[in-house]
Every structure is written in structure tokens, then in C-alpha cells.
């Protein structure tokens, strides 16, 4: 059974009297352990698609199944549970909590999941080491560079050992060298920890990291390339 199963998923937005067809009927399966890159120009529906996969938004029509469950049929609280336990998010603007330290930002999803203190401490230390930020535990996000902040976001996304990590343009706000580093971390985690990644980008230079590349255009899949492990 695929981890994610999208069937004829469409999403429309009303903008005044105009209806925007952001996603027009996409069917797609994501298998566990994949590292999928969704590419396409701005406005092609990448973020909308990721939001629906990540239970952040509901489709206008079609079904999104996560582990075989139709997530559109779930309540807000049930969707929140899925986001907490099974999905990690990495945002383009990092979206760290500014008043919390690096360690606390990473720990937050575990607190929401009522994880025991010892486990939280151990996991946060391990992930900080994995993203190379051990010495920054007590720093506030505004004391870090963009690349460091995105690494914190990656650690936070992984802290509850999710089945899937969704990254929406994770390198958009980073310079190319830092972007490469961040993608390298994601690739390493995919290879070692078998974490499934679905990330969007419009930067063709980072496609080398993906096992599968899905091209979107005008809300539809315009092409798909299997790349295999790099």
C-alpha cells in the first residue's frame, strides 16, 4: 500500500468572482522511502499540492489517502494528530517560533505528542548533532543564519519520527551553497533513516537529489522522471 495515494485531486480557490483552479485533478502515489521533488514554475500548484498531501488543506474534489485513510474525511483534531505524529514540515521561511530557543523549537512537537522528558532530551541532542547544530541549542532563531535556521526546521520536522517530511521550497531563501548543504542533509536522512521526503522547488539544479521528479504545469502533472538513488 502506498504511503500517500492521491486520486483525481483538485483544488479551487475563489478570488472575488473568479475561480482559480490551483490543482486540476492529480493522481499520484508516494511510496515509503522515496525522495520526491515536485518542480514547476511559480503558480503551477506545487504548494497547494503539498498542503493537501500534508493535511494542511482539503481538496475541493478527489481523495487524499494517507496510509490508506482518506484524510479529507477526518476532523480537524484528527488531521492535527496526523500532522503531529506522521508528517514533518519544512517551510520556505523556516517558520521557527521566535521566542523559543533552537532546542525548544525542535522539542516542541514532542511536547505536543506527550513524549517523556528523557526521550525528548535524547532525541533533540541526536537531531542537533545530525544537522550539525549541537553548540546552538540555547540560541534563538534570530541568532542563526538562514541555513542554520533551515537545519533547525529539518530537525523539528524529524523529531517525532514521521513517515513523511514535506518541504515547500526549502532552499528558496538560501544561497546555493547553503541550499546544497540543506538538501544534502535531507538526502542523508532519506538514505540512512528511510524518511520519505516530498519537496517542491523551481530550481532545476537541485533535482539531482530526488529519486523521482514530478513536473507540474497549470495544476496538472506534466511529466514524471524516475531518477533512482544518487
Amino acid at each position: 500500500m502506498p504511503l500517500i495515494e492521491l486520486t483525481q485531486v483538485a483544488k479551487n480557490y475563489a478570488l472575488g468572482d473568479t475561480v482559480i483552479h490551483a490543482v486540476r485533478g492529480i493522481s499520484l502515489n508516494v511510496e515509503a522511502g522515496e525522495l520526491i521533488s515536485i518542480v514547476g514554475p511559480s503558480g503551477c500548484g506545487k504548494t497547494t499540492l503539498l498542503n493537501m498531501i500534508g493535511c494542511i488543506d482539503r481538496p475541493t474534489s478527489g481523495t487524499v489517502k494517507f496510509g490508506g485513510r482518506d484524510v479529507a474525511a477526518l476532523s480537524d483534531a484528527q488531521q492535527a494528530d496526523i500532522r503531529l505524529h506522521r508528517i514533518g514540515f519544512i517551510f520556505q521561511s523556516f517558520n521557527l517560533i521566535p521566542v523559543l530557543s533552537v532546542g525548544e523549537n525542535i522539542e516542541l512537537p514532542m511536547i505536543l505528542a506527550h513524549a517523556p522528558v528523557n526521550k525528548r532530551k535524547e532525541t533533540v541532542e541526536r537531531l542537533l548533532a545530525a544537522v550539525g547544530l549541537t553548540e546552538y541549542t540555547r540560541h534563538k532563531p534570530n541568532e542563526l543564519s538562514g541555513g542554520q535556521r533551515q537545519r533547525v526546521a529539518i530537525a523539528r520536522a524529524l523529531v517525532n519520527s514521521p513517515d513523511l517530511v514535506i518541504a515547500d521550497e526549502p532552499t528558496a531563501n538560501l544561497d546555493s551553497r547553503t541550499g546544497d548543504e540543506v538538501l544534502g542533509v535531507m538526502k542523508e536522512l532519506n538514505r540512512k533513516e528511510k524518511v520519505t521526503f516530498v519537496f517542491s522547488t523551481h530550481n532545476p539544479g537541485i533535482l539531482q537529489y530526488a529519486t523521482r521528479v514530478i513536473k507540474l504545469k497549470d495544476g496538472l502533472i506534466a511529466g514524471m522522471t524516475e531518477q533512482g538513488a544518487n
Binding site: F89, F91, P109, R156
Partner: peptide
């Protein structure tokens, strides 16, 4: 937006 982030990582409305 911070509340949005918190909800995205699993915080419930309640």
C-alpha cells in the same frame, strides 16, 4: 503565522 506553524506541527485548535 506563528499559530499557523504551531497548528501545522500538530497543535489542535482547542
Amino acid at each position: 503565522p506563528v499559530f499557523g506553524t504551531l497548528r501545522a506541527i500538530g497543535l489542535k485548535r482547542s
